[in-house]
Amino acid sequence: MPIKIAVLAKQVIDPEMPMAAFRVDSESKKVDTPATIPPVVNGFDENAVEAALQIKDSQEATVTVISSGTEFALDVMKKPLSMGADELVLLQDQAFGNTIDSFVTAQLLAAAVRKLDGFDLVICGRQASDWDNAQVPLGVAEILGFSCISLGKKVEVKDGKVVVERITSDGYEVVEAPLPAVVTVSNELGQPRYPTLRGIMAATRKLPTIWTAADLDVETDQLQPRLSLLDLFVPERIQQCEIIEGEDAADAGRQLALKLREAKLI
């Protein structure tokens, strides 16, 4: 039996966009993005795709990418397919707003995983670069009753178990858990592979499965937002920077040391 892997991926505002272009509309409590800056697949979710494909490189496996949102840039969301994933499932509904509430998003994604049935492993990025909530994958594990290991930098499947190198504050630990399992991965997993030309060609021919709220079996109570967003603003920066000058760069370095001494910092 091939190992059945789901990757949960989110479309986000490009976090590499110039900071000068970052604006918040306090009225709607949303981040305004200029139309010229296309969205991207959340960076950690690309790491998750890479982790799934590494498993597929070494053993028989299928990789299904699942995403939830109100609207999608299809060429962007097809990137995991062009990297080598097999299928794309989009949960698309005006009700699936990109909110600060991870609870509802986890219910939708868990319902999709349940409906597609039979997954051994769900791999996710550790957090999304928009709301930085780092909650959805752990919530999916709780809802489905799967084992859960977070912050992986290496993911393998052996003898019906998932084996993960999990990042700790002073190194890493090797953790094992029975399948089915949810694993979150971090950038330490390494650079995601580039799409190949063949992958891009194959991805253009693939059509995503699209489900709306009506296709998903979630209790109404579970779709009630658990959090309210009261305000969203850009914090003010008040720091005045003193540029230390010198005859040349080396002299400026010496002047810096003197300045720090004067300020009793060294």
Binding site: C241, E242, A249, A252, R254, L260
Partner: peptide
């Protein structure tokens, strides 16, 4: 530079050895 209190605008390869020596 928008976050720092003090800054040296220059190549670290020149700045660091002189800074470290002075320190």
């Amino acid at each position: 530079l928008r976050e720092a209190r003090y800054a040296v605008v220059g190549d670290w390869e020149q700045v660091i050895p002189a800074f470290a020596e002075a320190v």
